[in-house]
């Protein structure tokens, strides 16, 4: 527990977070189905030791593994989602929110922290895919904007780990406009001369890829991450085209010129710190 945790009101504290990989001694790789020892998988940052598949990972675990130990404190944690449209489909949006909050221990689908990576001061945001498919509504947009504001105020670069199905339908046009809001925030970050590194993880699609996802000064992806505007099912349905193997995967995007690099999760700290140090004209990280 960092000092900051002690300052937080207890209802923000999230002792019992649901992990992206269910509890139990053994875990099955979501790609090659190998039976993996949980502790070993965790040590390997949820990368399958057999096939190197990068399994999905929760926002807080992500931030914890990326930032220097105990260096992080959360930004804009107190923002609570609302239901401006009183949206109801088969379930009420209110109930979906409550359920997602219970399941993940998060208030919404983006967690923002200021901290250091290899001693370089940064602000890092990470999407929680387990929270309504990491969808972007008003809170995600506002947290992103405040993370940018923090960067500008403290002259720090921004790193974003995205994992999102896109804009959140239940907040309708408010969600769509978060694309414009986050992009405008990044315009300001750029004007302040501060770098933005976008790391797209599996999956990053729709309104998130079409805004903050692909607006990095440097655009990175994790191996095999699905990245695209339309989801594969939508493309197949609307266009009647069958998608070839590996279409919209990170490797495909790299080949098409859409990415700067693919970075193995286990090297993310080293690679990103080295990029940031150059962009910020700092000495080579140790």
């Amino acid at each position: 527990m960092s000092w900051f945790d002690n300052l937080m009101p207890s209802r923000i504290k999230t002792e019992q977070r649901k992990r992206s990989v269910p509890e139990g001694l053994w875990v099955k790789c979501t790609d090659c189905s190998a039976q993996l020892y949980r502790a070993e998988l965790k040590r390997n940052l949820l990368v399958c030791p057999k096939c190197e598949y990068h399994m999905r990972i929760g926002a807080r675990d992500r931030l914890e593994m990326f930032l220097d130990p105990d260096s992080g404190h959360e930004i804009a944690a107190n923002l609570e989602p609302q239901d401006p449209l009183k949206f109801k489909d088969s379930k009420r949006y209110r109930d979906r929110l409550t359920q997602a909050q219970k399941d993940t221990g998060e208030r919404d689908a983006l967690v923002a922290m200021a901290g250091t990576v290899k001693v370089i001061p940064v602000v890092v945001v990470a999407f929680e895919f387990q929270f309504m498919a990491g969808s972007m509504g008003s809170v995600v947009g506002e947290r992103f904007r405040r993370a940018v504001d923090y960067c500008i105020e403290h002259k720090r670069p921004l790193v974003c780990f995205s994992a999102s199905g896109g804009a959140r339908m239940q907040e309708a046009l408010f969600s769509l406009f978060q694309m414009a809001k986050t992009s405008a925030a990044l315009a300001e970050l750029g004007e302040a001369g501060l770098p933005y590194i976008s790391v797209m993880t599996d999956p990053t699609t729709g309104g998130v890829s079409a805004s903050l996802g692909l607006l990095g000064d440097i655009n990175i992806a994790e191996p095999k991450a699905l990245i695209g505007f339309a989801g594969p099912r939508v493309i197949e349905q609307t266009v009647g085209e069958t998608l070839p193997e590996g279409f919209q995967q990170a490797e495909f995007l790299l080949e098409k010129g859409g990415l700067d690099m693919i970075v193995d999760r286990r090297h993310a700290r080293d690679e990103i710190a080295a990029l940031l140090a150059k962009l910020m004209d700092r000495p080579k990280p140790a």
Partner: peptide, 8 residues
């Protein structure tokens, strides 16, 4: 643009 969104 910064004002778009409803949250508490």
């Amino acid at each position: 643009l910064a004002g778009y969104g409803v949250y508490k």
